[in-house]
Simulated scan of single mutants.
Amino acid sequence: MTALDPQVAQLLNDLAAKPRAQPGDESIAAYRQAGESLVALAGPPNEHCEVDDIIIPVREGAVAARRYRPSGSTAQRLPGVMYTHGGGFVRGSLDSHDRLCRELCVQGGLIVVSIAYHLAPENQFPRAHNDALDTFAWLTEHAIELGIDADSLAVAGDSSGASLAVAVANARRTQGAPVKAQGLLCPALDATMGSDSIERYGEGPFLTRMALQWSYDLYVPNAGDRQSPLASPVLARSLEGSPPAVIISAQVDPVADDARRYGEKLTAAGVSVHSEEYPGMPHSFVLLAGVLDKGEHAIASFASGLAGLLR
Results as ranks from 00 to 15, higher is better:
Glu276Asp: 04
Asp53Tyr: 15
Ile56Leu: 02
Ala162Tyr: 06
Asp131Arg: 00
Gly305His: 01
His97Ile: 14
Gly161Cys: 12
Gln227Ser: 05
Asp53Thr: 10
Leu309Asn: 06
Gly88Ile: 00
Met193Ser: 12
Asp14Gln: 09
Arg20Ala: 08
Glu50His: 13
Gly270Gln: 11
Ala268Ser: 08
Lys265Ala: 13
Arg67Asp: 12
Leu104Pro: 02
Asp131Pro: 11
Asp14Ser: 12
Asp196Ser: 05
Asp257Asn: 06
Gly72Leu: 04
Gly108Asn: 14
Gly109Met: 02
Pro57Phe: 09
Ser249His: 15
Ile144Leu: 13
Gln7Tyr: 09
Arg32Ile: 14
Ala188Ile: 04
Ser284Glu: 08
Asn222Phe: 00
Pro70Gln: 14
Ala42Pro: 12
Gly308Asn: 10
Glu141Tyr: 11
Ser238Thr: 05
Val39Cys: 12
Arg226Asp: 01
Val106Met: 03
Ala289Lys: 06
Pro244Ser: 06
Met210Pro: 05
His297Asp: 15
Ala42Leu: 08
Val81Asp: 01
Ala42Cys: 06
Ser73Ala: 12
Asp95Asn: 09
Ala29Gly: 00
Asp98Ser: 11
Gly183Arg: 01
Leu104Ile: 02
Leu164Gly: 10
Asp53Val: 14
Ala42Glu: 10
Pro45Met: 01
Val166Cys: 12
Leu189Gly: 15
Tyr201Ala: 03
Val246Asp: 10
Gly263Glu: 07
Ser160Leu: 14
Gln213Pro: 00
Ser159Phe: 08
Asp149Thr: 04
Leu110Asp: 05
Pro178Asp: 05
Tyr68Trp: 11
Arg69Glu: 11
Pro126Thr: 01
Ala245Gly: 03
His85Arg: 12
Asp134Val: 08
Gly202Glu: 12
Val220His: 03
His48Ser: 08
Val179Asp: 11
Pro233Tyr: 00
Ala236Trp: 02
Val286Ala: 07
Cys101Tyr: 13
Gly61Trp: 08
Ala223Met: 14
Glu50Met: 13
Thr74Tyr: 02
Ser160Tyr: 07
Ala62Tyr: 10
Asp14Val: 13
Ala188Cys: 13
Ala116His: 14
Glu240Gln: 05
Trp138Gly: 01
Leu185Thr: 05
Ala188Trp: 11
Val106Asp: 15
Gly194Ser: 04
Thr208Glu: 10
Gly86Ser: 06
Gly80Asp: 07
Gln182Gly: 04
Arg66His: 15
Trp214Asp: 07
Gly157Ile: 04
Asn130Met: 07
Glu199His: 06
Ala17Cys: 13
Val273Gln: 13
Phe136Met: 10
Thr2Arg: 05
Leu218Asn: 03
Lys265Arg: 02
Pro79His: 06
Leu185Phe: 07
Gly202Val: 06
Glu50Ser: 14
Asp131Trp: 05
Pro45Cys: 04
Gly35Lys: 01
